[in-house]
Design a protein around this nucleic acid. Structure first.
Lengths: 340, 340
DNA sequence: GTCAGAATTCAAAGCGGTTTGAAAAATAAA
DNA sequence: TTTATTTTTCAAACCGCTTTGAATTCTGAC
């Protein structure tokens, strides 16, 4: 394991020249550069990262601060998002550093990343209603990209988001077109920005067809499997049961399906279900005709793009913002049919 | 944002003394230390991490190399494991750096971590049959802790693992005691060490009761939901259907449950199911009487402990190995009953 | 009052790179 | 051949911390 000094000694060149040759600076002759590169290869030289970081003041890392939800739940979409982002980082020579923090420590985590230069930029995960984290990050001078969107700060931030409102509006329209009038919404926590957008899409579609949104048909919680099942059962056993469910996550949708069959009803016949599908790899909803009719958008892809965006952002001057709005596909599966 | 030089100037002390005062070295008087600490607080001094890393030669980070499975599936247990480990790192001042790599690039990832000192140690995830990664890590001089176990290298590695064999043996015994004779095993990929152990436990129990393991009742694949459902349906429609299923993951178990009900059978009555439950937060299987009878072991806890182990390992000399063997709880739920 | 020994403090040398400003070498122009 | 330019190379400073080895101050014993 040689270092720069030894390498330059072996070459009988100064550290300056060797460093420049390896980092592609123009002020070094082609001949010398070749010689340096070859020798570096031979001696197996690899620049020490910590030293470079100290010298350049850049950490070559991107931070992800992952909050544990109020209910201590880890959202599996993070994993898939991270998988996508990690792929991108690897090819660009960045490290991914992850801090898992409790909701109320998130601010400290960001401060620490900024003040100790743990990362050159961060991904802001899971924007909430009245989120102020972007203000903090701006103040800390820490570049960031939002996964999702912060309502009201769309112009002042870079973000990548699925068009959740439109996805749920289309899904609701589909159910209405199938004749459903009582459509339940099994939503995620409505303290989250995306969940509110989804509800808006759902309500917009209902109202456009002269249907009055019914609070009793809407629920909001962490998207676990039992949540889906229990809510479905409760609603199906109520006075005026829904004939269709619109669900915010595959996980809860599976619960809804279980609830439906526990009530002795058939999914796709007696009751229709449309779910949002983040394309989680362990919950594939594919095949010729997918189990669930769904609005699908790959969260892994979002991770890939978010990583590209933040890398670009930390590397360029200026502070124009970029954003990317992804449309979800509406995919017909076996879980929808005409209203009974 | 002051640095050490400025801080020491403000105190009219040498950098040496200030550094030592802050890092708790004994050769500094209590009075001076107080003065230093107070001034550091006032000026908001935070040592630059890169500089410290360069000076100490320690990166204060632990690496997790997460392989994407052959089928490009991200196992959600990683997320939960990471959540646990991350917690521990945070309280010990370590960073967690994550590399998501394709199976065949894993070796490079480790080499890079070692040669560029990206991390002081790593967690070895998902040990496989004939795994040789520990040899590589030993050779690289990179401390590591295995999450799981590498068969044949138990004495030469540090690891934390669930007693998978015993868990599945007990589960199988329970089913046998309930009168089941044809018990299917819906296992994870049997290229993975843990899956083999589970099968061993299952077969051991069968044989101990004079039952001959039947290859037709065993299957092995990535643990997705559809895998569970499809396998259950196929087996239930076969010549000699099983009366019970032993499943390696909650996710597939949910699929199995769906398959069972699609076949018009009732879980816990016509067909029994026991699953291994990693206590994933988005798939809670709790309540007074859990849905699934299960062998449960919190993977998040494993993450916490693994992190503690690796931190201890990178901080001490010598190379004794530590290991921790966790016993899974066998928890009775609603999914088991006497054989019909 | 001295002096050895312990307790504190310090200047300076790393750690391993990058980068500035100047010098040397090569090339072009006069 | 000189001189002016452009290329290429270099020595040294710097990034911000830790740590070694020496110097200084403080104790307590004699």
């Amino acid at each position: 394991m040689v270092n720069l000094k030894e390498l330059s000694k072996a070459l009988e060149l100064s550290q300056t020249t060797v460093s420049r040759a390896l980092n592609g600076y123009p002020e070094v002759s082609a001949k010398t550069r070749d010689r340096v590169v070859e020798m570096a290869r031979q001696l197996g030289y690899e620049p020490n990262l910590q030293a470079r970081r100290l010298a350049t003041g850049r950490s070559m890392a991107i931070g992800h601060v992952i909050p544990r939800s109020v209910h201590d739940m880890m959202n599996p979409i993070f994993l898939e998002f991270i998988a996508g982002a990690g792929q991108t980082y690897a090819t660009h020579g960045y490290d991914m550093i992850i801090s898992v923090v409790e909701d109320n420590n998130e601010e400290d985590a960001f401060r620490e990343i900024a003040s100790r230069k743990k990362a050159d930029g961060v991904i802001l995960q899971g924007p909430r209603i009245n989120d102020r984290r972007h203000d903090l990050l701006d103040q800390l001078g820490l570049p960031f990209v939002v996964h999702g969107r912060i309502t009201g700060a769309e112009e002042r931030t870079s973000w990548i988001d699925v068009n959740n409102r439109r996805a749920f509006e289309r899904a609701t329209n589909l159910l209405i077109d199938l004749g459903h009038k009582r459509i339940a919404l099994i939503n995620g926590l409505e303290t989250m920005d995306f969940a509110v957008r989804r509800r808006t899409g759902y309500e917009t579609a209902l109202q456009a067809h002269g249907l009055e949104p019914d609070q009793k048909l809407m629920s909001s919680a962490d998207m676990t499997e039992p949540y889906g099942a229990e809510t479905a059962i409760r609603l199906l056993k109520s006075q005026e049961p829904p004939t269709a469910f619109l669900v915010s996550s595959m996980i809860s949708a599976i619960g809804v399906a279980r609830g439906i069959s526990l009530c002795g009803l058939r999914i796709g016949k007696d009751v229709s279900v449309i779910t949002h599908d983040d394309a989680l790899s362990f919950l594939p909803n594919s095949g010729e005709v997918p189990i669930f009719t769904c609005t699908r958008s790959s969260v892994r892809y979002a991770g890939i793009r978010a990583a590209e965006m933040i890398i670009q952002k930390v590397n360029e001057e200026g502070d124009e913002h970029a954003y990317e709005h992804l449309e979800a596909e509406l995919i017909l599966g076996q879980s929808t049919g005409p209203a009974p």
